[in-house]
Design a protein around this nucleic acid. Structure first.
Lengths: 188, 188
DNA sequence: CCATAGTTTGTACTATGAGTACAACATAGG
DNA sequence: CCTATGTTGTACTCATAGTACAAACTATGG
Protein backbone atom coordinates (compact mmCIF):
# COMPACT_ATOMS: atom_id res chain seq x y z
CA UNK A 1 0.00 0.00 0.00
CA UNK A 2 2.92 2.33 0.50
CA UNK A 3 4.50 2.14 -2.95
CA UNK A 4 1.85 3.82 -5.05
CA UNK A 5 3.21 4.29 -8.60
CA UNK A 6 4.07 7.89 -9.44
CA UNK A 7 1.49 8.23 -12.18
CA UNK A 8 -1.40 7.22 -9.96
CA UNK A 9 -0.09 9.42 -7.18
CA UNK A 10 -0.15 12.48 -9.38
CA UNK A 11 -3.62 11.62 -10.63
CA UNK A 12 -4.84 11.23 -7.09
CA UNK A 13 -4.01 14.82 -6.32
CA UNK A 14 -6.87 15.70 -8.58
CA UNK A 15 -9.14 14.60 -5.77
CA UNK A 16 -7.75 17.10 -3.28
CA UNK A 17 -9.94 19.97 -4.40
CA UNK A 18 -13.04 17.83 -4.24
CA UNK A 19 -12.24 16.68 -0.74
CA UNK A 20 -11.35 20.18 0.39
CA UNK A 21 -14.62 21.52 -0.97
CA UNK A 22 -17.05 18.88 0.20
CA UNK A 23 -15.23 17.05 2.95
CA UNK A 24 -14.32 13.42 2.64
CA UNK A 25 -17.83 12.30 3.48
CA UNK A 26 -19.42 14.55 0.99
CA UNK A 27 -17.14 13.03 -1.61
CA UNK A 28 -18.15 9.75 -3.18
CA UNK A 29 -15.47 7.25 -4.01
CA UNK A 30 -16.97 7.14 -7.50
CA UNK A 31 -16.47 10.89 -7.77
CA UNK A 32 -12.86 10.44 -6.83
CA UNK A 33 -12.55 7.72 -9.44
CA UNK A 34 -14.11 9.95 -12.05
CA UNK A 35 -12.18 13.12 -11.34
CA UNK A 36 -8.82 11.36 -11.05
CA UNK A 37 -9.46 9.01 -13.95
CA UNK A 38 -8.54 6.04 -11.79
CA UNK A 39 -10.97 3.16 -11.69
CA UNK A 40 -12.54 2.44 -8.35
CA UNK A 41 -11.16 -1.09 -8.38
CA UNK A 42 -7.67 0.29 -8.89
CA UNK A 43 -8.03 2.65 -5.99
CA UNK A 44 -9.05 -0.22 -3.78
CA UNK A 45 -6.21 -2.33 -5.12
CA UNK A 46 -3.67 0.16 -3.78
CA UNK A 47 -5.37 2.03 -1.01
CA UNK A 48 -7.60 1.31 1.90
CA UNK A 49 -10.73 3.06 0.67
CA UNK A 50 -11.56 6.70 1.23
CA UNK A 51 -9.54 6.94 4.37
CA UNK A 52 -6.62 5.57 2.42
CA UNK A 53 -6.96 8.32 -0.15
CA UNK A 54 -6.97 10.96 2.54
CA UNK A 55 -4.09 9.31 4.34
CA UNK A 56 -2.06 9.18 1.17
CA UNK A 57 -2.65 12.81 0.26
CA UNK A 58 -2.03 14.16 3.72
CA UNK A 59 0.95 11.94 4.44
CA UNK A 60 2.62 13.46 1.47
CA UNK A 61 1.80 16.97 2.64
CA UNK A 62 3.00 16.30 6.15
CA UNK A 63 6.22 14.68 4.96
CA UNK A 64 6.87 17.74 2.87
CA UNK A 65 6.27 19.99 5.85
CA UNK A 66 8.45 17.86 8.09
CA UNK A 67 11.24 18.17 5.54
CA UNK A 68 11.00 21.94 5.23
CA UNK A 69 10.79 22.35 8.96
CA UNK A 70 13.81 20.13 9.36
CA UNK A 71 15.79 22.46 7.17
CA UNK A 72 14.46 25.53 8.94
CA UNK A 73 15.40 24.39 12.42
CA UNK A 74 18.87 23.16 11.60
CA UNK A 75 20.45 26.57 11.19
CA UNK A 76 22.89 28.01 13.71
CA UNK A 77 20.57 30.81 14.84
CA UNK A 78 19.09 31.04 18.29
CA UNK A 79 15.97 29.06 19.06
CA UNK A 80 13.63 31.96 18.73
CA UNK A 81 14.79 32.72 15.21
CA UNK A 82 14.57 29.08 14.26
CA UNK A 83 11.11 28.88 15.76
CA UNK A 84 10.03 31.71 13.52
CA UNK A 85 11.61 29.95 10.56
CA UNK A 86 9.86 26.69 11.43
CA UNK A 87 6.47 28.36 11.62
CA UNK A 88 7.14 30.20 8.39
CA UNK A 89 8.04 26.90 6.75
CA UNK A 90 4.85 25.23 7.96
CA UNK A 91 2.75 28.12 6.83
CA UNK A 92 4.58 28.32 3.53
CA UNK A 93 3.85 24.73 2.61
CA UNK A 94 0.22 25.10 3.65
CA UNK A 95 -0.19 28.15 1.47
CA UNK A 96 1.35 26.36 -1.47
CA UNK A 97 -1.10 23.50 -1.12
CA UNK A 98 -4.37 25.17 -0.32
CA UNK A 99 -6.60 22.21 -1.14
CA UNK A 100 -4.65 19.75 0.92
CA UNK A 101 -4.52 22.26 3.72
CA UNK A 102 -8.26 22.73 3.67
CA UNK A 103 -8.80 19.00 3.48
CA UNK A 104 -6.65 18.60 6.56
CA UNK A 105 -8.42 21.28 8.54
CA UNK A 106 -11.89 20.30 7.43
CA UNK A 107 -11.36 16.66 8.31
CA UNK A 108 -8.99 17.14 11.19
CA UNK A 109 -10.88 14.77 13.42
CA UNK A 110 -10.68 11.99 10.91
CA UNK A 111 -7.03 12.76 10.21
CA UNK A 112 -6.08 12.48 13.85
CA UNK A 113 -7.99 9.22 14.06
CA UNK A 114 -5.86 7.67 11.32
CA UNK A 115 -2.75 6.44 13.14
CA UNK A 116 -0.27 7.17 10.33
CA UNK A 117 -1.54 10.72 10.06
CA UNK A 118 -1.56 11.29 13.79
CA UNK A 119 2.11 10.39 13.87
CA UNK A 120 2.93 12.50 10.83
CA UNK A 121 1.13 15.45 12.40
CA UNK A 122 3.23 15.18 15.50
CA UNK A 123 6.40 14.96 13.48
CA UNK A 124 5.61 17.85 11.19
CA UNK A 125 4.03 20.19 13.72
CA UNK A 126 4.07 19.49 17.41
CA UNK A 127 7.47 17.99 17.99
CA UNK A 128 9.60 20.66 16.33
CA UNK A 129 7.68 23.43 18.05
CA UNK A 130 7.96 21.86 21.47
CA UNK A 131 11.60 21.12 20.85
CA UNK A 132 12.37 24.73 19.93
CA UNK A 133 10.33 26.01 22.83
CA UNK A 134 12.53 24.13 25.23
CA UNK A 135 15.75 25.02 23.41
CA UNK A 136 14.67 28.64 23.57
CA UNK A 137 14.42 28.49 27.33
CA UNK A 138 17.86 26.93 27.45
CA UNK A 139 19.51 29.56 25.25
CA UNK A 140 17.53 32.42 26.74
CA UNK A 141 15.88 33.50 23.50
CA UNK A 142 12.39 32.42 24.61
CA UNK A 143 10.68 32.64 27.91
CA UNK A 144 9.39 29.58 29.69
CA UNK A 145 5.75 28.64 29.20
CA UNK A 146 3.66 26.61 31.58
CA UNK A 147 2.36 24.16 29.03
CA UNK A 148 4.50 23.79 25.89
CA UNK A 149 2.16 21.18 24.49
CA UNK A 150 -0.72 23.63 24.57
CA UNK A 151 1.41 26.28 22.91
CA UNK A 152 2.35 23.85 20.16
CA UNK A 153 -1.30 23.06 19.61
CA UNK A 154 -2.22 26.73 19.49
CA UNK A 155 0.44 27.35 16.92
CA UNK A 156 -0.75 24.40 14.89
CA UNK A 157 -4.33 25.62 15.04
CA UNK A 158 -3.39 29.12 14.09
CA UNK A 159 -1.30 28.02 11.13
CA UNK A 160 -3.69 25.49 9.70
CA UNK A 161 -6.85 27.51 10.09
CA UNK A 162 -5.27 30.67 8.78
CA UNK A 163 -3.55 28.75 6.02
CA UNK A 164 -6.80 27.20 4.92
CA UNK A 165 -8.56 30.49 4.35
CA UNK A 166 -9.84 30.91 0.83
CA UNK A 167 -7.38 33.32 -0.67
CA UNK A 168 -8.24 35.97 -3.16
CA UNK A 169 -4.76 37.09 -4.09
CA UNK A 170 -2.36 34.77 -5.86
CA UNK A 171 -0.82 32.66 -3.11
CA UNK A 172 2.58 32.65 -4.84
CA UNK A 173 2.89 36.36 -4.30
CA UNK A 174 2.23 36.42 -0.64
CA UNK A 175 5.28 36.36 1.54
CA UNK A 176 4.51 35.48 5.07
CA UNK A 177 6.43 36.49 8.08
CA UNK A 178 5.46 35.86 11.60
CA UNK A 179 6.36 37.33 14.88
CA UNK A 180 5.81 34.77 17.44
CA UNK A 181 3.21 34.81 20.09
CA UNK A 182 4.20 34.89 23.66
CA UNK A 183 1.41 32.88 25.16
CA UNK A 184 1.24 32.09 28.78
CA UNK A 185 -0.95 29.84 30.72
CA UNK A 186 -1.08 29.60 34.47
CA UNK A 187 -2.89 27.18 36.74
CA UNK A 188 -4.66 28.55 39.76
CA UNK B 1 -36.99 22.82 14.01
CA UNK B 2 -35.77 25.62 16.22
CA UNK B 3 -38.00 25.05 19.24
CA UNK B 4 -36.68 21.77 20.51
CA UNK B 5 -38.29 20.99 23.90
CA UNK B 6 -35.92 21.39 26.85
CA UNK B 7 -36.00 17.77 27.86
CA UNK B 8 -34.95 16.49 24.47
CA UNK B 9 -32.31 19.18 24.26
CA UNK B 10 -30.68 18.06 27.45
CA UNK B 11 -30.85 14.43 26.38
CA UNK B 12 -29.22 15.28 23.09
CA UNK B 13 -26.14 16.54 24.86
CA UNK B 14 -25.48 12.95 25.73
CA UNK B 15 -24.44 12.50 22.12
CA UNK B 16 -21.69 15.10 22.30
CA UNK B 17 -19.08 12.77 23.70
CA UNK B 18 -19.81 10.16 21.07
CA UNK B 19 -19.49 12.66 18.27
CA UNK B 20 -16.35 14.16 19.76
CA UNK B 21 -14.78 10.73 20.04
CA UNK B 22 -15.69 9.22 16.70
CA UNK B 23 -16.59 12.15 14.54
CA UNK B 24 -20.07 12.61 13.17
CA UNK B 25 -19.53 10.07 10.43
CA UNK B 26 -18.21 7.46 12.76
CA UNK B 27 -21.38 7.92 14.78
CA UNK B 28 -24.50 6.06 13.70
CA UNK B 29 -27.80 7.78 14.12
CA UNK B 30 -28.97 4.65 15.91
CA UNK B 31 -26.11 5.07 18.36
CA UNK B 32 -27.21 8.61 18.99
CA UNK B 33 -30.75 7.36 19.54
CA UNK B 34 -29.53 4.74 21.96
CA UNK B 35 -27.17 6.89 24.00
CA UNK B 36 -29.59 9.80 24.29
CA UNK B 37 -32.64 7.61 24.82
CA UNK B 38 -34.48 9.43 22.06
CA UNK B 39 -36.07 7.32 19.36
CA UNK B 40 -34.70 7.77 15.88
CA UNK B 41 -38.12 8.76 14.60
CA UNK B 42 -38.31 11.49 17.23
CA UNK B 43 -34.91 12.84 16.27
CA UNK B 44 -36.03 13.06 12.67
CA UNK B 45 -39.27 14.64 13.72
CA UNK B 46 -37.44 17.60 15.22
CA UNK B 47 -34.09 17.74 13.52
CA UNK B 48 -32.72 17.39 10.07
CA UNK B 49 -30.77 14.16 10.51
CA UNK B 50 -27.24 13.89 11.76
CA UNK B 51 -26.30 17.30 10.50
CA UNK B 52 -29.24 18.64 12.42
CA UNK B 53 -27.95 17.11 15.62
CA UNK B 54 -24.53 18.64 15.11
CA UNK B 55 -26.06 21.97 14.17
CA UNK B 56 -28.20 21.99 17.26
CA UNK B 57 -25.37 21.14 19.63
CA UNK B 58 -22.90 23.57 18.14
CA UNK B 59 -25.41 26.37 17.71
CA UNK B 60 -25.97 26.25 21.41
CA UNK B 61 -22.25 26.33 22.11
CA UNK B 62 -21.66 29.20 19.74
CA UNK B 63 -24.55 31.20 21.11
CA UNK B 64 -23.11 30.78 24.57
CA UNK B 65 -19.72 31.97 23.38
CA UNK B 66 -21.23 34.90 21.55
CA UNK B 67 -22.96 35.90 24.78
CA UNK B 68 -19.86 35.69 26.93
CA UNK B 69 -17.82 37.53 24.36
CA UNK B 70 -20.49 40.20 24.18
CA UNK B 71 -20.10 40.80 27.90
CA UNK B 72 -16.32 40.74 27.69
CA UNK B 73 -16.06 43.35 24.96
CA UNK B 74 -18.56 45.79 26.40
CA UNK B 75 -16.38 47.04 29.23
CA UNK B 76 -14.84 50.50 29.25
CA UNK B 77 -11.27 49.26 28.94
CA UNK B 78 -9.07 49.87 25.94
CA UNK B 79 -9.41 47.58 22.95
CA UNK B 80 -6.36 45.54 23.74
CA UNK B 81 -7.63 44.67 27.19
CA UNK B 82 -11.04 43.83 25.82
CA UNK B 83 -9.44 41.70 23.13
CA UNK B 84 -7.71 39.70 25.80
CA UNK B 85 -10.98 39.40 27.67
CA UNK B 86 -12.78 38.26 24.54
CA UNK B 87 -10.22 35.56 23.81
CA UNK B 88 -10.29 34.45 27.43
CA UNK B 89 -14.08 34.21 27.22
CA UNK B 90 -13.94 32.10 24.06
CA UNK B 91 -11.33 29.82 25.53
CA UNK B 92 -13.19 29.61 28.81
CA UNK B 93 -16.39 28.36 27.22
CA UNK B 94 -14.47 25.87 25.09
CA UNK B 95 -12.73 24.47 28.12
CA UNK B 96 -16.02 24.12 29.95
CA UNK B 97 -17.48 22.14 27.07
CA UNK B 98 -14.69 19.87 25.99
CA UNK B 99 -16.83 17.44 24.02
CA UNK B 100 -18.60 20.08 22.04
CA UNK B 101 -15.31 21.80 21.46
CA UNK B 102 -13.75 18.65 20.11
CA UNK B 103 -16.78 17.93 17.99
CA UNK B 104 -16.45 21.38 16.49
CA UNK B 105 -12.77 21.07 15.74
CA UNK B 106 -12.98 17.51 14.51
CA UNK B 107 -15.81 18.29 12.14
CA UNK B 108 -14.91 21.85 11.36
CA UNK B 109 -15.33 21.37 7.65
CA UNK B 110 -18.83 20.09 8.04
CA UNK B 111 -19.64 22.81 10.54
CA UNK B 112 -18.61 25.56 8.18
CA UNK B 113 -20.63 23.92 5.44
CA UNK B 114 -23.81 24.19 7.50
CA UNK B 115 -25.03 27.71 6.88
CA UNK B 116 -26.44 28.34 10.36
CA UNK B 117 -23.18 27.27 11.93
CA UNK B 118 -21.06 29.27 9.55
CA UNK B 119 -22.96 32.37 10.59
CA UNK B 120 -22.76 31.52 14.28
CA UNK B 121 -19.02 30.96 13.96
CA UNK B 122 -18.58 34.39 12.48
CA UNK B 123 -20.66 35.97 15.20
CA UNK B 124 -18.97 34.18 18.08
CA UNK B 125 -15.40 34.31 16.83
CA UNK B 126 -14.39 36.30 13.81
CA UNK B 127 -16.48 39.40 14.08
CA UNK B 128 -15.65 40.41 17.63
CA UNK B 129 -11.94 39.84 17.05
CA UNK B 130 -11.86 41.84 13.85
CA UNK B 131 -13.91 44.55 15.49
CA UNK B 132 -11.53 44.86 18.43
CA UNK B 133 -8.53 44.75 16.14
CA UNK B 134 -9.76 47.80 14.36
CA UNK B 135 -10.84 49.58 17.55
CA UNK B 136 -7.38 48.88 18.92
CA UNK B 137 -5.80 50.68 16.02
CA UNK B 138 -8.14 53.58 16.60
CA UNK B 139 -7.42 53.91 20.32
CA UNK B 140 -3.74 53.14 19.93
CA UNK B 141 -3.73 50.06 22.11
CA UNK B 142 -3.01 47.68 19.24
CA UNK B 143 -0.84 48.03 16.20
CA UNK B 144 -2.22 47.78 12.72
CA UNK B 145 -2.07 44.41 10.98
CA UNK B 146 -2.07 43.86 7.26
CA UNK B 147 -4.84 41.29 7.22
CA UNK B 148 -7.19 41.41 10.22
CA UNK B 149 -9.25 38.57 8.78
CA UNK B 150 -6.24 36.28 8.81
CA UNK B 151 -5.41 37.30 12.35
CA UNK B 152 -8.95 36.53 13.44
CA UNK B 153 -8.72 33.11 11.82
CA UNK B 154 -5.39 32.42 13.48
CA UNK B 155 -6.83 33.30 16.84
CA UNK B 156 -9.82 31.10 16.18
CA UNK B 157 -7.59 28.20 15.17
CA UNK B 158 -5.36 28.61 18.16
CA UNK B 159 -8.26 28.74 20.60
CA UNK B 160 -10.24 25.86 19.22
CA UNK B 161 -7.36 23.48 18.66
CA UNK B 162 -5.78 24.23 22.02
CA UNK B 163 -9.18 24.12 23.70
CA UNK B 164 -9.91 20.71 22.24
CA UNK B 165 -6.82 19.07 23.66
CA UNK B 166 -7.61 16.11 25.85
CA UNK B 167 -7.02 17.44 29.32
CA UNK B 168 -5.59 15.45 32.14
CA UNK B 169 -6.15 17.91 34.95
CA UNK B 170 -9.62 18.91 36.02
CA UNK B 171 -10.67 21.61 33.57
CA UNK B 172 -12.48 23.56 36.28
CA UNK B 173 -9.24 24.21 38.07
CA UNK B 174 -7.37 25.59 35.18
CA UNK B 175 -7.41 29.34 34.92
CA UNK B 176 -6.42 30.55 31.55
CA UNK B 177 -4.87 33.84 30.79
CA UNK B 178 -3.52 34.91 27.50
CA UNK B 179 -1.15 37.51 26.40
CA UNK B 180 -1.99 38.39 22.91
CA UNK B 181 0.06 37.61 19.95
CA UNK B 182 1.45 40.36 17.88
CA UNK B 183 1.25 38.78 14.51
CA UNK B 184 2.25 40.55 11.41
CA UNK B 185 1.91 39.65 7.86
CA UNK B 186 3.41 41.51 4.98
CA UNK B 187 2.94 41.11 1.27
CA UNK B 188 6.00 41.33 -0.92
C1' DC C 1 -64.59 16.47 30.03
C1' DC C 2 -63.79 16.52 25.29
C1' DA C 3 -61.73 17.84 21.00
C1' DT C 4 -57.80 18.89 18.86
C1' DA C 5 -53.15 19.74 17.76
C1' DG C 6 -48.80 18.48 18.53
C1' DT C 7 -45.61 14.88 19.92
C1' DT C 8 -43.76 10.24 20.56
C1' DT C 9 -43.29 5.44 19.47
C1' DG C 10 -42.44 1.27 16.72
C1' DT C 11 -41.76 -0.89 12.76
C1' DA C 12 -41.12 -1.60 8.22
C1' DC C 13 -39.51 0.24 4.31
C1' DT C 14 -36.32 2.59 0.35
C1' DA C 15 -32.13 4.45 -1.41
C1' DT C 16 -27.46 5.29 -1.51
C1' DG C 17 -22.94 4.47 -1.55
C1' DA C 18 -18.83 1.90 0.52
C1' DG C 19 -16.42 -1.89 -0.11
C1' DT C 20 -15.73 -6.84 -2.26
C1' DA C 21 -15.25 -10.54 -5.71
C1' DC C 22 -13.58 -12.00 -9.60
C1' DA C 23 -12.48 -12.96 -14.25
C1' DA C 24 -10.41 -11.00 -18.18
C1' DC C 25 -6.83 -8.23 -19.90
C1' DA C 26 -2.28 -5.62 -20.13
C1' DT C 27 2.54 -5.13 -19.53
C1' DA C 28 7.17 -5.29 -18.01
C1' DG C 29 11.28 -7.93 -16.49
C1' DG C 30 13.80 -12.08 -16.27
C1' DC D 1 7.75 -16.45 -23.79
C1' DC D 2 6.40 -16.87 -18.96
C1' DT D 3 5.24 -14.98 -14.85
C1' DA D 4 4.65 -11.22 -11.54
C1' DT D 5 2.22 -7.48 -10.91
C1' DG D 6 -0.97 -4.19 -11.99
C1' DT D 7 -5.47 -2.66 -14.37
C1' DT D 8 -10.20 -2.88 -15.99
C1' DG D 9 -15.16 -3.73 -15.84
C1' DT D 10 -18.96 -5.43 -13.92
C1' DA D 11 -21.73 -7.28 -10.79
C1' DC D 12 -22.46 -8.12 -6.56
C1' DT D 13 -23.20 -7.45 -0.68
C1' DC D 14 -24.01 -4.93 3.11
C1' DA D 15 -24.44 -1.13 6.30
C1' DT D 16 -26.89 2.72 7.41
C1' DA D 17 -29.15 7.27 6.49
C1' DG D 18 -33.39 8.73 5.97
C1' DT D 19 -38.71 8.05 5.07
C1' DA D 20 -43.52 6.50 5.76
C1' DC D 21 -47.06 5.88 8.50
C1' DA D 22 -50.35 4.34 11.79
C1' DA D 23 -51.17 3.98 16.51
C1' DA D 24 -50.65 5.77 21.03
C1' DC D 25 -49.87 9.38 24.14
C1' DT D 26 -50.12 14.27 26.17
C1' DA D 27 -51.30 18.84 27.02
C1' DT D 28 -54.32 22.68 26.47
C1' DG D 29 -58.06 25.61 25.92
C1' DG D 30 -63.11 25.72 25.24
Amino acid sequence: MRKLPAKLASQLYGAAELIAERGLDGTKIDDIAEVTGILKATIYYHLDGKNGVLAFLLSDLLDLIAGEVGVAISSAEDARTRLEAAVAAQLGVMVEHPFLCRALVGDLGRATRLPELAVALRTAFYEPIEQLLSEGVADGSLRQVADPGAVAMSVFGAITVAGSAPRSRDPQRIQLRTRLAARRRSAS
